[in-house]
Simulated assay, not measured.
Amino acid sequence: MGHLRSFMDGIGLFLQGLRWVARNPRWWLFGLIPALIVSVLYMVGLYFLGTNAGDIAEWATPFASGWGEAARNALRALLGLVIFGAGLVLSVVTFTAVTLIVGDPFYEKLSEKVEETYGEVPSGYELPLWKSIPRSIKDSLITLGYVLLFTIPLFFLGFVPVVGQTVVPVLGALVSGFFLTVELTTLAMERRGMARKSRFALLRRNKAVALGFGVLIFLLFLIPLGAVVAMPAAVAGGAIMVRTRLAPVA
């Protein structure tokens, strides 16, 4: 029951972030800008991948040229679907990290404004932009490595009958949700001088809360344009989570 309650608390923290941006629509619009830019780039990339998946599959299977037409076409159609599916999964798991990097000044300011409503904003650990962006990129790449370590096997397990349609989607949502929380709490934790290893350790100790927060966001991000609309609320919720639950003492 304790874990379930904490999981529900995580969901509640996102809803608090949603309420915050609903009460401050100017900041919601402010937070939409980077998410919208990255979303357009991702949609263009996915469109290109979708329209060329067949050609990529054909290029990758020269050995099938001598096969019968039916077998050759079936193999390349399946591989084309796998290629596009992999691109879609990768876009979901990287969207938050890329958006936070592109929109670092936007989301840093949004996160600070959220914390201001709860009292004094922690200070003394701020880095200049030319240092913070490379560090954010490095941390995001490390996090992406962890994500891929889990999601690549899960992606291929998704083709296993029964298991791929039941267990795998749940595990995928849990893994992606946890690492979304890692990304979305980074700004507020860095404001407290917490390095990457410390941030990971803190979230592992509060895994149920992190999962409740991140899984809901992951599901929202699967909805077309959901990632764009929900991103400011997710950043606000991450700041509230750190402020009130993970590291309440500044």
Results as ranks from 00 to 15, higher is better:
residue 96 T to A: 09
residue 200 F to W: 06
residue 98 V to E: 00
residue 138 K to E: 14
residue 192 R to M: 10
residue 85 G to Q: 09
residue 196 R to K: 06
residue 118 Y to G: 12
residue 110 L to P: 03
residue 131 K to N: 13
residue 99 T to H: 02
residue 84 F to N: 04
residue 68 G to S: 11
residue 122 P to L: 03
residue 178 F to I: 11
residue 103 G to L: 02
residue 117 T to V: 06
residue 200 F to T: 02
residue 80 G to H: 03
residue 143 T to N: 14
residue 118 Y to P: 06
residue 146 Y to T: 11
residue 185 T to G: 02
residue 125 Y to W: 14
residue 201 A to Y: 05
residue 188 A to V: 03
residue 89 V to Q: 13
residue 112 E to M: 07
residue 134 P to S: 00
residue 175 V to A: 08
residue 196 R to M: 13
residue 195 A to M: 08
residue 150 F to M: 04
residue 116 E to S: 07
residue 89 V to A: 13
residue 176 S to A: 15
residue 197 K to H: 14
residue 206 N to I: 05
residue 111 S to N: 07
residue 135 R to H: 07
residue 79 L to F: 13
residue 96 T to S: 08
residue 154 L to D: 04
residue 85 G to I: 14
residue 174 L to I: 15
residue 176 S to C: 14
residue 157 L to F: 06
residue 66 G to H: 00
residue 197 K to L: 15
residue 177 G to L: 10
residue 209 V to K: 14
residue 87 G to L: 06
residue 206 N to M: 12
residue 144 L to W: 02
residue 108 E to A: 12
residue 137 I to T: 08
residue 133 I to K: 03
residue 140 S to V: 10
residue 64 A to S: 15
residue 186 T to I: 10
residue 166 T to R: 08
residue 121 V to R: 00
residue 99 T to C: 01
residue 169 P to M: 04
residue 155 F to T: 02
residue 174 L to S: 07
residue 112 E to S: 12
residue 103 G to C: 05
residue 125 Y to F: 15
residue 189 M to G: 04
residue 90 L to Y: 14
residue 199 R to C: 06
residue 174 L to Y: 04
residue 210 A to F: 01
residue 172 G to H: 05
residue 146 Y to G: 13
residue 130 W to Q: 12
residue 88 L to Y: 14
residue 79 L to H: 13
residue 117 T to W: 04
residue 89 V to K: 12
residue 134 P to R: 06
residue 66 G to N: 04
residue 123 S to T: 10
residue 154 L to G: 01
residue 162 V to G: 10
residue 151 T to S: 06
residue 89 V to W: 10
residue 145 G to A: 09
residue 87 G to F: 07
residue 146 Y to I: 11
residue 79 L to K: 11
residue 65 S to Q: 14
residue 93 V to S: 07
residue 119 G to F: 00
residue 207 K to H: 11
residue 138 K to F: 10
residue 138 K to A: 15
residue 144 L to S: 09
residue 103 G to W: 00
residue 74 A to D: 15
residue 207 K to P: 04
residue 203 L to S: 03
residue 120 E to L: 09
residue 75 L to D: 01
residue 151 T to I: 13
residue 142 I to G: 08
residue 196 R to E: 04
residue 82 V to M: 15
residue 159 F to Y: 09
residue 141 L to Q: 08
residue 175 V to D: 08
residue 108 E to I: 01
residue 115 E to M: 12
residue 207 K to W: 14
residue 70 A to K: 10
residue 193 G to T: 03
residue 103 G to H: 00
residue 100 L to R: 06
residue 102 V to S: 09
residue 139 D to T: 07
residue 170 V to W: 03
residue 74 A to I: 12
residue 175 V to F: 01
residue 129 L to S: 11
residue 201 A to F: 05
residue 120 E to I: 11
residue 156 F to H: 02
residue 122 P to R: 05
residue 123 S to R: 08
residue 68 G to I: 11
residue 155 F to D: 07
residue 161 P to V: 01
residue 118 Y to E: 15
residue 159 F to M: 08
residue 77 A to E: 11
residue 191 R to E: 02
residue 131 K to R: 15
residue 149 L to C: 10
residue 158 G to C: 04
residue 109 K to W: 11
residue 183 E to K: 10
residue 112 E to N: 09
residue 126 E to N: 09
residue 85 G to F: 11
residue 162 V to Y: 09
residue 185 T to R: 01
residue 172 G to R: 09
residue 191 R to D: 00
residue 153 P to K: 07
residue 198 S to A: 15
residue 152 I to H: 03
residue 151 T to W: 01
residue 80 G to D: 09
residue 210 A to N: 05
